[in-house]
Every structure is written in C-alpha cells, then in structure tokens.
C-alpha cells in the first residue's frame, strides 16, 4: 500500500511522517510521530480527548485528515512542559486533583491552553465554554474549571510559573 509523506511542525520541531490514504491526524501523531499524548476516545467529535492545536486553534485530530496539516503547526500536551518545568496548567491540574483516570486530561489541557493563549483573564463561564467540547466522566468538571482558573491566575502573576511557556 502506498503511503503519503506529510510534513508539519510538532511542538516546535520539524516532523515528517508517512500516512495511509484516509488516515487521521491522531494516527499520524501517535503511530507516525510517536506522540502518545492525544487519545482516541469516541472517534466522532463528542469527547474531545484527541484535541490538538493546529496553528494555535483547537481541532479534533481524530476527525482531521492527516494530509490536510501539511506545512502547519501542531501543538499537543507533550509540548506544554519545558524540560522538567511543568506548564502552569499541568501543575494546577496536579495540585487541584483535576485528573482522576486522566484519559480526558490531554484534551482538556490543550483546550485550556487555547483559551489562555488568547484570553489570559477568562471568566468562569468562558472556561466552561472553552472545555465544553471535552467530556470528563470522573471529576464532575469543577476541579478542572478551578485548575484552569488557578493556572490563569498563576500565569498573570509577576514571575508566574511558566509565563513564557
């Protein structure tokens, strides 16, 4: 079976993979590029655990044809931390027990990052809206919303952890 080469930037690094015809971006990331952070959930656009940023905007990687990201910039949860320094969102999720089984966390974190990248001071309703496409069956959402609000506050504070991440 012939494969198609696809080149893109993954978390700031030039990346190239070969994909089967019709392969989705999630497969290209997990099997091709070895980034296991985005997860396969529903496969139909309901759960949001496969969410990645394409050119800074959240997209569902399981519903994105891999070939359409040629030359574009992809960000995943794997790219949030810098070395051993966790992103404030990741730290807030840990501190606030915002992850239980953790399966939704990768998508939640990416959706939250997309929000904070454009809106550093979101209201609680704006946070709820930002993660409205991401399902969590464990937490009841409140710890996740609290964690995103806390991370936003951290990032706004002088010298806040990971401000430039």
């Amino acid at each position: 079976m012939s494969k198609t080469p696809v080149s893109f930037t993954l978390n700031g690094r030039d990346t190239g993979v070969f994909v089967d015809g019709g392969a989705n971006l999630l497969d290209a990331l997990r099997r091709g590029a070895g980034d296991l952070s985005p997860k396969y959930g529903c496969g139909q656009g309901t759960c949001g655990t496969c969410t990645v940023l394409i050119d800074g905007e959240p997209h569902l990687s399981c519903l994105t044809l891999a070939e359409t990201v040629e030359g574009r910039s992809i960000s995943t949860t794997s790219g949030l931390q810098q070395g051993a320094q966790l992103h404030p969102l990741q730290q807030a999720f840990i501190d606030g027990f915002a992850a239980q089984c953790g399966y939704c966390s990768a998508g939640m974190l990416v959706a939250a990052k997309a929000l904070l990248d454009t809106n550093p001071s979101p209201s609680r309703d704006e946070v709820i809206e930002a993660i409205s496409g991401n399902l969590c069956r464990c937490t009841g959402y409140e710890p996740i919303i609290d964690a995103i609000m806390e991370a936003a506050a951290q990032m706004r504070s002088p010298g806040g952890l990971g401000r430039a991440v």
């Binding site: 969410t51 905007e57 997209h59 409205s132 496409g133």
Partner: peptide, 9 residues
C-alpha cells in the same frame, strides 16, 4: 454548534 474544536472544523 459543538465545542470550540468542532466549530473550527
């Protein structure tokens, strides 16, 4: 229509 990711697609 959907969440932010769906609306981008």
């Amino acid at each position: 229509v959907g969440g932010p990711a769906v609306r981008n697609m």
